[in-house]
Simulated scan of single mutants.
Amino acid sequence: MRFYTAEINGKEEILVGFDDKKVAYRLPVLAKLAPQLAFTDMNSLIAGWSASVREALVALAANADVLRGAAVQVAEVKLCAPIVHPRQDVICLGINYAAHGVEAGHFSSEDFGGERPYTIYFSKRVNRATATGEAVPSYEGLVDSLDYECELGVVLGKDCKGVSVSEAREYIFGYTIINDISARNLQTRHKQWYLGKSLDGFTPMGPCIVTADEIGDEQALDISCTVNGQLRQNSNTSRMLQTVCGAISELSQGITLQAGTIIATGTPAGVGMGMKPPVFLNPGDEIVCHIEKIGDLVNTIA
């Protein structure tokens, strides 16, 4: 299944998609026949996800008459980020593809070089996630080196603590695309990466959340990014240094990861700071982040 958040008649509501990626169905309409589907937003849906909720959706998916009255064309509605207001900061993995580590070290050996025997974790403040189709602010006068980072986003479906690598997949609700927009001058100036990653508008996310069962092996997904039609990033999640399940397990040894937790799993090589000379984003640029089985996250720079 694919879950969207869309603005319809001035209100945010959840849409669910089944086999046809072009069509989705309004959950508030479906909930009139299945009250257990009466979720107010994506956070409440994830927290309330259960076998019975899934079974209700599967049953409705087979009822053509019901679906007809709830159907919308995805391309014709205003999509929001699937989780508009994350309950907590996004947990991010840094330098999680070897080739990205090399290019980052070339940009600044002081800030990105050296040995990395353990996974780098940091957090990213998100007051409101940016939707596909929305603009990302350039912050003229504050940011002089705006960069993109296409990443696989993981959304947990239930609380977990102390889980093993083999158990971790059981806690995943689904996957989305995140563009970890970064102000390199702020990121390197302050040494800690928090400020340079957390300006308002710096977390484009979407276009939807695809449930884990439809993704299958999350470590075998093509991931790419274009800027103004030029291919910049082109890799596969198999090249991650720390796997999705490895990160969940490692984090959960000392942290209770709550349902709805979002983990951004790192970006492959090809970011602007890795080019020679570096090429950063400017107003008017269009960034398209693509991940196999999920779709495209499209944003422009304002």
Rank of each mutant, 00 (worst) to 15 (best):
M1I: 09
F3S: 10
Y4V: 02
A6K: 04
K11H: 06
E12K: 13
E13Y: 02
L15I: 04
D19F: 00
K21N: 03
Q36M: 13
A38P: 04
T40K: 13
M42P: 10
M42H: 04
N43T: 14
L45W: 05
G48T: 08
S50Y: 07
S52F: 03
A62D: 06
V72I: 10
V72D: 05
E76G: 06
K78W: 06
P82M: 04
I83M: 00
I91R: 09
L93T: 08
G94R: 05
E103N: 07
G105L: 08
S109V: 14
D111I: 14
Y118S: 01
Y118L: 01
R125D: 13
L146Q: 02
D147R: 10
L152N: 09
G157M: 01
S166L: 12
E170I: 05
E170H: 11
F173A: 07
Y175W: 06
I178L: 15
S182W: 14
R184Q: 12
L186F: 13
Q187L: 15
R189L: 15
K191G: 02
P207N: 06
A212N: 14
D213E: 15
D213T: 10
D213P: 11
I215S: 03
D222Q: 11
S224Y: 08
V227I: 15
L241G: 14
G246R: 03
E250A: 12
Q253M: 08
G260R: 12
T261C: 07
I262S: 01
A269N: 02
V271T: 15
P278E: 13
L281E: 01
D285W: 03
I291P: 04
N299R: 10
N299L: 09
A302D: 14
A302R: 15
